[in-house]
Design a protein around this nucleic acid. Structure first.
Lengths: 217, 217
DNA sequence: ACCTGAACACCGTTCAAGT
DNA sequence: ACCTGAACACCGTTCAAGT
């Protein structure tokens, strides 16, 4: 037995054959089931395998460790959210800043709400080792999309768009998460929409290149 | 042996006597040491006890479980950050919004940077069970402080300050965390300062009650 | 080629026994 | 009053053996 934990998240087998693909999916779905059922601590390789109807050994044929199992599911989840944002960004190219901000905020919120349970179950262990890497990939994709969109704005010019997009993305995540932790009641979500738009729009208005500078400080 | 985990975070013994207080502190310090030394997975009750020069049993006289140990350290860390922000908020009462925003952002960033290593080591397991509760207490304190300060602003009026302060706090955490995950290089920190100010100021400018409304959408 | 499940190492937690 | 450390339950992971 190696003393160092295998931290690689790469899967051991891609669904090479017909039957094994079903097993693979069953394990992934069982993971979400177990996660939704109980606390994060209830997530046990044995329990997942049991729920998937296979033995532990089978699980370890496809995933190198428990974390990889969790990350696979998280990757899938984040991917679907990012995809929604990317779509919106494409559609908004050439529009005015206010339209862009509203559309992106809406699509982000909606994508999250579509999978509220999954998202809440998944964000508990988000800060685990190896998870940051996965989250970073997702946020980088979102940043790239937002960056390119903003570069095409018809009514504003920006300096340092890489930084601006990173601030926007990371600033949006916190309030969204907070609202979801409170169960995302509709009234609060409505308020959140308005405030996130104000946050983004106010920020962009503040750091955009002004022709006439508004004195401050 | 009870099958349910003891999730209570309450300490079992407050430093009742002279000697035991030293033991208590030793365990807390050992926890940070172990955390700073290796990965989060290296944090083991046995290892912490060993480093503190006591046996595992002694550790469990003071902390009901491993999580409580972690939370005690995190609480201390977050408390010091919040305290800095609270101080600044008091000092800024009655000032203009721009001054408030700059001062609060600075104090938040500085408080975090003062304990950069600790903060980075601590935020790995932040999303663990029971941690959210502790984080919530800290953010609620920060929100209350910011809310009261904003209510005294000389140049602006706000509606729904509870919501506004919550958005501000949770929006600031993300970008800050991202920069710290990158090691917080000075150049990036400088940029962060500017961008967080712009984020807060732009947002507040956007949602404050206007006398003359600037047309949007 | 894929699956099984007993076996191993290790960790959180306890408790009878020590001083 | 405080500490010890062997003991217990349980979990992640493996691997020889099965089909």
């Amino acid at each position: 037995l190696g003393s160092k934990a295998d931290l690689s998240l790469a899967l051991r087998k891609k669904p090479v054959q017909e039957r094994s693909a079903a097993t693979f999916r069953a394990i992934c779905e069982a993971t979400i089931q177990v996660l939704l059922a109980g606390n994060f601590e209830r997530l046990t390789t044995t329990r997942v395998a049991e729920r998937a109807g296979v033995s532990v050994g089978t699980l370890y044929q496809y995933f190198p460790n428990k974390n990889a199992l969790l990350m696979a599911v998280l990757t899938e989840h984040l991917g679907s959210v990012v995809e929604a944002v990317e779509q919106t960004c494409l559609l908004q190219r050439g529009r005015r800043v206010s339209a862009m901000v509203e559309a992106v905020c809406d699509s982000y919120i909606d994508a999250k709400l579509n999978r509220l349970d999954e998202s809440r179950a998944l964000y508990r262990p988000t800060a685990e080792l190896g998870c940051e890497a996965v989250v970073l990939i997702a946020t980088n994709r979102a940043c790239a999309a937002i960056e390119k969109m903003l570069a095409t704005a018809s009514d504003a010019l920006f300096r340092d768009l890489p930084m601006i997009s990173k601030v926007l993305v990371s600033a949006l995540i916190g309030p969204m998460q907070a609202v979801m932790d409170m169960g995302a009641p509709p009234g609060l979500v409505r308020k959140l929409r308005k405030h996130l738009v104000a946050l983004c729009f106010g920020y962009l208005n503040e750091i955009r290149l002004h022709s006439k500078s508004s004195a401050r400080s």
